[in-house]
Design a protein around this nucleic acid. Structure first.
Ligand SMILES: [Mn+2]
Ligand SMILES: [Mn+2]
Ligand SMILES: [Zn+2]
Ligand SMILES: [Zn+2]
Lengths: 149, 149
DNA sequence: CAATATTTGGGAATGAGTGTCATTCGCAAG
DNA sequence: CTTGCGAATGACACTCATTCCCAAATATTG
């Protein structure tokens, strides 16, 4: 896959500067964690992550996921299974949504037509303003059974 | 509020027959649980439920929520807070979506224009069929800060 | 009123996620 | 290249939402 290495370096650069801006260090452990998530290309649970890179310590991964979520670099996804899923945040991956398999718990990224996307966003903005609600982001998931289940 | 009593009886009737169909009993505890959820008019957590009706035993509420979810009468909502939320299922409440407050964890029901709703559903159906995914239902949430936070 | 199957509820157990703290690391200044 | 110091690490203890367990209570059938 040509281009992959470059893309990963770009991601590391971007994340490094975001962390620096908040007086956090971009350590080897954090870099490895980000690499695992970037290479997976789909949301991962903690077991997924430490399986992919067994050198990572569970407690450090949990702590670093938290740091990176608070830095806006990683996004937390609560899909209802035993484990929370994590993926790179939208500034890095772009806005998108998910197919969630209610059998195996797997999650896959999907992209809506921008026309539909804008309509949804407009509708939600209208509704929110009517309730005095301040919107931050929306989530749209399709729940069902994946091809394997 | 005229009509409320009737509406609640209808709900109990409907749920009773659904449970009977699956060889479950509609006991007093289950009836009380359903009444609490029906009267709240918004998704509730377990603490919300046992606070609203302190006669309900925690372990029984958890068990009955599970039975009722499996019977298609109650819907489980994983919003990312400490506690899972529960509400009456869509056959009883109608299809709708949620405003989720990331400060206090509160959830409020919202309804989209049916035009937008149909577009979203069509888009998701198309995407799903392309991946061999079998859709069951979608969820669309707006995350942000509620009027109180 | 049995006989039988389901449900209840108090408390124990489970396990995902968080907190602790002594040790290690990363960075900047000299 | 050292040294100094705040940030980060990782093994392990701990928390607490949820599930499990099982003897007692309750509903259903006849
Ligand atoms: Mn969207
Ligand atoms: Mn919808
Ligand atoms: Zn699956
Ligand atoms: Zn709020």
């Amino acid at each position: 896959m040509p281009g992959d290495t470059d893309h990963l370096s770009e991601i590391h650069l971007e994340i490094g500067s975001r962390l620096a801006r908040q007086d956090h260090r971009y350590t080897t452990g954090r870099r490895h964690l980000v690499s695992v998530l970037a290479q997976a290309g789909q949301p991962m649970t903690l077991p997924d992550i430490v399986t992919a890179d067994p050198d990572l310590a569970q407690s450090s991964v949990y702590r670093n996921l938290d740091v990176l979520v608070r830095s806006g670099v990683i996004r937390r996804i609560s899909a209802g299974g035993d484990h929370t899923h994590f993926e790179l945040a939208e500034p890095l991956l772009g806005h998108h949504h998910h197919l969630i398999c209610i059998s195996c718990g797997g999650i896959e990224d999907i992209h809506l037509d921008s026309e539909v996307e804008m309509l949804v966003d407009q509708s939600l903005t209208d509704i929110a303003s009517r309730s005095g609600f301040t919107p931050i982001h929306h989530s749209l998931d399709l729940h069902g059974h994946c091809a394997d289940c």
